[in-house]
């Protein structure tokens, strides 16, 4: 009885020693080292500043191959929803033609751009989404938005019955983390990447029954 017990203890001890030898820094130490490496490897260039590396709760919780724990995920979504600014005068819809132009443009906010004004920015939409199906050059990181309004039964975006989908879409554009804590989608309103009118125009592209997207 004594021998196997001692044997097990011995094996455990050797195992622990070996593990101690084989492992380098702990995951937490590596996290700290990586933070330091990231902070020291970049510099300001043009309009882009080194402090753009700073992360809020959502970004730091979504910076690994693991999902955040449920409590953190809930907190990220709640904070994102709270960040949403609703459109002035409850006016959600703009011009789908201007929206299409924005959707096509991937411009803005790189160190080779010269202005932080959202007017200079595009929406990058086709980089990741199918939208008007006549545009064959579209990305697949996000879901297809072809017939976005039609599929959701939107015939009159101003009708009270469509308010939930209209508001949902506004939130998604303003701060997509309100519905998915680690969403890949940029927070166009929250980070001032597009202004209110530009967001209205993209809303119209997606929801206006006359938009080519809903034919």
């Amino acid at each position: 009885m004594n021998i196997p017990y001692r044997l097990i203890l011995g094996i455990a001890l050797v195992g622990a020693l070996l593990a101690g030898c084989a492992t380098g820094p702990s995951p937490a130490e590596l996290d700290a080292q990586a933070q330091k490496v990231i902070k020291t490897s970049f510099r300001d260039q043009g309009i882009v500043k080194a402090n753009w590396l700073d992360q809020d709760l959502g970004l730091s919780a979504c910076s690994s191959d693991k999902e955040p724990d449920p409590a953190t995920a809930d907190r990220i979504m709640a904070e994102a929803l709270k960040s949403v600014k609703w459109p002035t005068g409850g006016q959600y819809m703009g011009d789908w033609r201007a929206g299409e132009k924005l959707a096509q443009s991937g411009r803005g906010m790189t160190w080779t751009d010269t202005s932080l004004d959202p007017k200079e920015n595009g929406g990058n939409c086709y980089n990741c989404h199918q939208i008007d199906n006549k545009e064959i050059s579209y990305g697949t990181i996000g879901p297809s938005l072809w017939n976005y309004g039609k599929n959701r039964g939107v015939t009159d975006p101003a009708a009270p019955a469509t308010a939930p989908i209209v508001q949902y879409t506004w939130v998604k554009l303003w701060n997509a983390k309100a519905y998915s804590p680690c969403s890949n989608m940029p927070r166009f309103g929250h980070k001032n990447l597009l202004n209110e009118q530009q967001l209205r125009d993209i809303m119209a592209l997606l929801l206006d029954p006359k938009s080519p997207v809903n034919q």
Partner: peptide, 30 residues
């Protein structure tokens, strides 16, 4: 290990990391 952490590090005006575009099979930009 540092490279892996840098790969998944999200920041900047658009919240992107390397992983935003390069962590799944069969994806495209345009």
């Amino acid at each position: 290990e540092i490279g892996k952490r840098a790969f998944f590090y999200r920041a900047g005006s658009h919240d992107f990391s390397c992983a935003s575009c390069h962590s799944e099979d069969g994806k495209r930009i345009r």
